[in-house]
């Protein structure tokens, strides 16, 4: 058990937290009585999934996925390594004068020095989808408040069952 904990918990700390956050959100989504609270739970549920995806793309010791050989020494070194070593120094001189053209003709960097961009792209989409859903859900919640005068689920269900409130 202790070994399992050591192995799983230490190497997968982010993944454990994502499960915990997701379960908090899911619990709130099902069990909370107030509709706004349900929506907060829904948002937490969605961010937990985003946390999972972003954790996939993390590489230990890597930088952000933006090419910048001037500012970042590691990236510059990777460029110099990957391109022709003899040519590397000359080109480095050239960068100061020619600006952007310094990228041209160079070979690509070592992929391990940059975080994986694909999960980031996917999660941009997911965040936007999340806010769109939240907006629609909030507008429906406003309609429910207008119709029933309450945002508590049990009160609303009572009104629906009893049929004792007129418009």
């Amino acid at each position: 058990m202790a070994e399992f904990f050591q192995q799983s918990f230490h190497a997968h700390f982010n993944f454990w937290i994502y499960v915990i956050l997701m379960m908090i959100g899911l619990w709130a989504l099902i069990a909370k009585n107030n509709l706004i609270k349900k929506l907060i739970g829904m948002s937490i549920f969605q961010t937990a999934i985003i946390l999972f995806y972003v954790s996939l793309g993390v590489k230990a010791g890597a930088t952000i996925p933006i090419l910048d050989p001037y500012g970042n020494k590691e990236q510059a070194a990777a460029y110099a390594e990957e391109s022709d070593p003899a040519k590397g120094k000359n080109e480095k001189k050239g960068t100061e004068e020619k600006g952007d053209s310094s990228y041209v003709g160079k070979k690509s960097p070592n992929p391990d020095i940059m975080a994986n961009p694909l999960p980031h792209v996917l999660m941009l989409t997911a965040i936007v989808v999340g806010v769109a859903t939240l907006g629609v859900a909030l507008s429906i919640a406003q309609m429910i408040f207008k119709e029933f005068g309450s945002l508590e689920e049990d009160e609303i269900l009572e009104i629906v069952k009893g049929g004792n409130v007129d418009d």
Binding site: H12, W27, A62
Partner: peptide, 25 residues
């Protein structure tokens, strides 16, 4: 909700133990 959450959480954590390490390039 508690039952559903506990079941789902256990399934997910069971899967986590099989993952490649966090930050593995």
């Amino acid at each position: 909700a508690t039952i559903a959450v506990v079941i789902t959480g256990c399934i997910l954590l069971y899967g986590v133990s099989d993952f490649p390490g966090f930050g593995d390039p």
